[in-house]
């Protein structure tokens, strides 16, 4: 495994002007993925993790939005790309696995049709029958026994689990370097979600793709990711490898998140985090978690990143 990141987001800011004022959605996000690495981005709803995913593929669409920083994929800055440039990158070098398989496939085209189009978008030189063969093989790889039937079906004729597998196939079929997975399977029941993550792990290893998993579910993240970024209110507050993060979390927000997970042993009830995600149009100065933090003090105004161990970085004075 090389140590050079294949994908990195550097100091990404995103501001959207709204009626209520300018919302500072992303406030200097930094993260990187090495080739073939499985990384998770966790945080509660509205913390900016999905915005980060959307920005990574240039799918953020809002009038009067302003983005700063750099998103680098294999040496090119994606933020500087125009529409045509994006079209060359999406689906070939970076792709996405969507959250709700029922909504992410077009209801009026067959699964095969959509797979073949995705393949030929990536390789325009491929013939239709070649693409069809490739799609069939792809579906077999996600353990679909009767790919022909699935190919000729419409999405609404298939179960959520099957559609999810189709989406995974579609995302990986052009062997991208990076896959962004936005809470895959969270719209499905837990067994299917488990299966989804297993398949993703398997296939990404096959094509050596790096995965950025967006999730709010710490249980999912613990089993899947090698490294974790914790996001709060548009900023990365802590990053560490999975074992370290779960055994020795440093940031009060990470600790609070872990304490909020319900446990089967049931010795104590999960502890909710008091307060709510701050208002993005008027965020607290400095550490945005400060108003909810049990340890707040005057130095919290602009905490630097501390590095208690190599690869473990935390944005807190504690």
């Amino acid at each position: 495994m090389s140590t050079d990141p294949v994908f990195s987001i550097e100091n990404l800011h995103l501001r959207i002007r709204q009626f209520e004022g300018e919302a500072h959605i992303l406030n200097g996000v930094n993260l990187h993925l090495r080739a073939g690495e499985r990384v998770a981005l966790v945080g509660e709803s509205g913390c900016g993790k999905s915005s980060t995913a959307m920005m990574s593929l240039g799918l953020m669409e809002a009038r009067s939005m302003r983005a700063e920083g750099r998103i680098i994929l294999d040496g090119t800055d994606l933020l500087s790309l125009r529409r045509r440039g994006w079209q060359g990158v999406r689906g070939r070098q970076i792709s996405m696995i969507f959250q709700d398989p029922g909504a992410a496939l077009n209801p009026v085209f067959t699964v095969g049709d959509q797979l073949v189009t995705a393949i030929r978008r990536g390789n325009p030189s491929k013939s239709r029958s070649d693409a069809q063969g490739l799609a069939t093989d792809g579906l077999r790889q996600v353990h679909i026994n009767d790919p022909e039937r699935v190919m000729s079906s419409y999405p609404f004729q298939l179960s959520g689990g099957l559609n999810q597998r189709v989406l995974i196939t579609m995302a990986l079929i052009n062997r991208p370097k990076v896959v962004v997975a936005d809470e895959p399977g969270s719209a499905l029941d837990v067994t299917v979600q488990e299966q989804t993550l297993r398949l993703m792990t398997e296939l990404c290893a096959d094509v050596d793709a790096a995965v950025l998993l967006i999730s709010h579910n710490l249980g999912v993240v613990r089993r899947f990711a090698q490294r974790i970024y914790v996001m709060y209110s548009g900023t990365i507050v802590e990053e560490a490898d999975t074992a370290t993060l779960f055994s020795a979390p440093r940031h009060p927000y990470t600790k609070a998140l872990l304490a909020a997970v319900p446990r089967l042993t049931g010795e104590r009830l999960p502890e909710p985090i008091p307060g709510r995600v701050p208002d993005y149009t008027d965020p607290p100065v400095g550490c945005r978690f400060r108003p909810r933090c049990p340890h707040q003090r005057s130095e919290c105004v602009d905490p630097p990143f501390a590095e208690p161990a190599p690869g473990h970085r935390v944005r807190c004075v504690l």
């Binding site: 060359g88 999406r90 689906g91 989406l167």
Partner: peptide, 10 residues
């Protein structure tokens, strides 16, 4: 979402 998917696939 399927339009977003189409965009995500270039």
């Amino acid at each position: 979402q399927y339009i977003q998917l189409a965009r995500a696939f270039g």
